[in-house]
Design a protein around this nucleic acid. Structure first.
Lengths: 137, 137
DNA sequence: CAGGATCCCAGATGATACTG
DNA sequence: CAGTATCATCTGGGATCCTG
């Protein structure tokens, strides 16, 4: 036990950490919920069902890849349902499941919090930045 | 206006999107809140003030880089305060500000939601995976 | 003990082209 | 229209070394 110490211990800690996370179910969900696009898609669908192309426009800026990937994840987690209408130009609608709708107020709560405290955060940032810039003497 | 179309339009959309995000204050905060480590540090500090090294142990698995980076971000946003005690081996304590404490219940709410609905999500995932694996025939 | 500076890898994400 | 496959990229995050 001489050739390795800090590195190995760190490695162990990380494995233990991962195991901890793996064992914590809520953590896995939190992972999904904190995804950049999930919240946006959730917000977009909160207004009602939407077609793929509509979502692409509403969440403007997302690539097909990310949109599809996000939708698939959400579908897998039971947050949204996918309805295929085999018309000539295929039509696919996405809508929130009851589980997904259940989540909307949660996200809005965070958004509200953010809006309410935004000025405080802004102030904190400016104070931090200016003191850092001037060497805070 | 012939050599470029889809690509350029996409670019425009992205710029517009970024502008939108920049203009949406809550979004910027959401960015911070959804950070992988922020929630963990927040939880770690919820129990009370903590030294740098303690945090490193509590959030086991995080590297100094990420821990420092996370703490700096949170400090800048006014979520945590940093107290330096110029003793011989420098001592630095971090604690949640009132703003940060205000955020704790929010995060716990999400965690609760996740725990409550975890089984539903698990079920959805299994259903999704098995139907996908069997070709969903 | 705290943390800044660097180097580096891997996964996340974007752009494009192609298909049903 | 919806979605997949691939290639290129870009940033997050980890390991290390160094300083106050």
């Amino acid at each position: 036990m001489a050739t390795q110490t800090a590195a190995q211990r760190r490695e162990e800690a990380r494995l233990a950490y991962n195991a901890y996370l793996a064992g914590c179910p809520s953590r896995k969900l939190l992972d999904t919920l904190s995804d950049k696009w999930v919240s946006l898609v959730l917000a977009a669908l909160a207004d009602g069902p939407c077609r793929y192309s509509e979502l692409a426009r509403t969440v403007a800026g997302v690539s097909q890849k990310m949109l599809t990937q996000t939708l698939r994840t959400m579908e897998r987690d039971g947050l949204v349902s996918r309805t295929i209408t085999p018309s000539v130009p295929v039509r696919v609608d996405y809508r929130l499941t009851s589980l997904g709708e259940d989540l909307v107020p949660l996200m809005q709560a965070i958004k509200s919090w953010a809006e309410i405290h935004m000025d405080e955060v802004e102030a904190a940032r400016q104070a931090y930045d200016s003191s850092a810039a001037s060497g805070d003497a």
